[in-house]
Design a protein around this nucleic acid. Structure first.
Lengths: 208, 208
DNA sequence: GCCAAACTGTCATTAGCTGACAAGTGGCGT
DNA sequence: ACGCCACTTGTCAGCTAATGACAGTTTGGC
């Protein structure tokens, strides 16, 4: 792609290096036990520089989540307009997770796996992932609002659909934890969405 | 109720005092701008003591959320067993919020109002409220699993229902922010649950 | 080659948080 | 009343996260 500028490339390299060494350390020692100093030292930059790339330790770990949500919204926008909202969201979400698993779309499968583990073990991190999520939910509900043909600021439904979608993913992550990590998360996400859709079409699935 | 022990009462008093002064300061200066030292000083205890009552600054602010979830589960358990799960959750949630608004059940209406504001203004705090939430969701889905007659560990549906319920509340909080604070939150919660239930019975509400 | 902009390192500082130890206070048996 | 034990608290010391200020270096454009 773009080669523009040595400076720019160098920046990208340090950024990637920081992410890489951060994930390596998180994986080895856990999130809390890893310090910024260690991450910085592994890349041979000052701790101060770390904060010029990421605003917090959480942000490195969750850079992937943010990326995922970005891609998700891109895929959602490309879905045929006549598709029901939930179906579109369903397909887009599954596609993103599949991309992560296979390492497509510039995703790193190893990082994704590490992140699954991190989110399962560190509740503090999971909390921050919600923060990243809610920052994007506004954007997501705008998109959904457009698709539903209603204003996402006055009508609560787009927000509801958006957060229900996120619920599905959360539930999938939760089930994943229950399987001790040996289950394809894309299938779990698929299943969670199926349950919601079925629940909506056949209330008996969720209401009894 | 219990008067048991001077020591115990003293502890309760400092705990309450800490919460009170924390909320007062948060309201006046905002969450981030308030320091632990200030909170402690206002109650005339050492900052170290603060951390013997709360593990973090967020925990004071969210002690109310935790309490709410506790009460919610109590109310849910008291609901007639033949009521559909979502309906039971719906009613219990609305009851809790109403109790907060009116100051019943030992809730403090002013604190509740302050918290609404805090959650709306500080995304960091909202994120941590998710952490408190997810810590309780496990408990909540166990309860729901019992009610649905399935095992909450192998069947993903209880977790799904629980998190959908929380989505409703979140959506309500979100709408509340849109009304500049002059709307009864219990009504918004009621409306959000209605939408979900209607969506389930009449899919066209949520799927188009 | 030179200048301005961008990037980085060093230093200092604040806040959140934790462990260790000593001192004070309440509970309770004698 | 007395004293012992357990619990609570304050002090101190220290670590990590995070931010601002300043100075030095590198890069890109001219």
């Amino acid at each position: 792609m773009t080669a523009a500028g040595l400076r720019e490339r160098k920046k990208q390299r340090t950024r990637c290096a920081l992410i890489d060494s951060a994930f390596a350390l998180f994986r080895r020692k856990g999130f809390d036990a890893t310090t910024i100093d260690e991450i910085a030292e592994a890349v041979d930059v000052s701790p101060r520089t770390f904060f010029r790339y990421f605003t917090s330790k959480e942000e490195v770990a969750l850079s992937l989540v943010d990326e995922q949500l970005g891609v998700l919204m891109g895929l959602l926008a490309e879905r045929p307009a006549d598709e029901p909202v939930l179906t579109a969201l369903h397909r887009a979400a599954v596609d993103v997770v599949r991309a992560c698993e296979s390492g497509a779309n510039g995703f790193d499968a190893e990082h994704y796996e590490s992140m699954q583990e991190l989110l399962a073990t560190s509740p503090a991190l999971a909390a921050h992932s919600m923060e990243v999520g809610s920052a994007r939910v506004a954007e997501l509900s705008r998109l959904i609002g457009v698709r539903m043909g209603v204003d996402h600021l006055t009508d609560p439904r787009p927000h509801l659909v958006a957060s229900i979608g996120i619920c599905a993913v959360q539930t999938a992550v939760n089930s994943w934890r229950g399987t001790d990590g040996h289950a394809k998360s894309s299938e779990l996400v698929d299943r969670a969405f199926q349950l919601i859709t079925e629940g909506i079409n056949y209330p008996s699935v969720l209401t009894p």
